[in-house]
Simulated scan of single mutants.
Amino acid sequence: MISTMAHIDPKAELGSNVQVDPFTMIHGDVIIGENTWIGSNVTIYPGARIGKNCRIFPGAVIAGVPQDLKFQGEESTVIIGDNTTIRECVTISRGTVDKQTTVVGSNCLLMAYVHIAHDCVIGSNVIIANSVQIAGHVSIDDWAIIGGSSAVHQFVKVGMHAMISGGSLVRKDVPPFTKAAREPLSYAGVNSLGLRRRGFSSETISHIQEVYRYLFLNSLNNSRALEEIEINLPATKERDEILNFIRSSERGVMKGYIN
């Protein structure tokens, strides 16, 4: 299962049934879970922690040194969950002193040429399409989808179940359950189709839509909209997820609907 034309440092730890194709290099201080396949010409640097049943396609570079001038060689890691697919030429940098790690969750799909910079935290069941470039310290929550060729500014947060249109410049935070599109990036509705596919009821989706009417369609500033939502709409897990996301935003959230 391990090609004689691959180079694997004796200090690397590989689980059972790991397959490594020719011309791949795996350095020391690497841990790879069982049943993971690693294609040709992959480079896995020290600090990589890769889960079970992952697939890593040719040309990927995992746990490379951060592209950050402040990096001083500190020990750090990249942690990748189970059942995640990393397509051709994806690059994932390890963490810096800020978080000490870069995280990609389980059941994710990172399509070809994606770059995930240092100290990012990517949730589970996330899809990041071809050539998306994600700067350092970005947080992307579970079930989010990022369209191809998008660029995500450092320190941006993307909420759970959000969907961002291809080619977007993501400079502000994108709240959960939303669709984001246009330039500048703005609210394009609730991700209703995605939510239905994941088992959300029509009543729950309607409730989420009502929350966003206050935030993005009623010409209220965020502070006033949050007050009105708490007064007029019943408390639910989804409502509180949205309110907490807006209140904790440091970069500010994307714009409301633009005609």
Rank of each mutant, 00 (worst) to 15 (best):
I2A: 04
I8P: 00
E13A: 06
L14D: 03
N17Q: 08
N17R: 10
T24A: 01
G28D: 02
V30E: 00
V30W: 00
I32Y: 01
G33S: 00
T36G: 00
W37P: 04
W37H: 08
P46D: 06
A48Q: 01
G51A: 08
P58F: 01
G64C: 15
G64H: 09
V65F: 15
P66S: 14
F71T: 02
F71Y: 15
F71D: 01
V78F: 11
R87C: 05
R87V: 00
I92F: 06
T102R: 10
T102F: 12
S106A: 11
N107W: 00
N107Y: 08
C108Y: 04
L110V: 12
M111Q: 05
A112R: 10
V114G: 07
I122K: 11
I128N: 04
I128T: 12
V132R: 07
H137N: 11
V138K: 00
I140D: 06
D141Q: 15
M160E: 10
G166D: 06
P175I: 06
P176Y: 08
P176S: 08
T178V: 04
T178P: 05
K179T: 05
A180Y: 04
E183T: 09
L185F: 15
S201Y: 01
E203S: 14
Q209S: 13
N218L: 15
S219N: 13
L220H: 12
L220G: 10
N221G: 01
N222V: 14
S223G: 11
E230Y: 05
K237W: 02
F245Q: 07
V253G: 03
I258W: 06
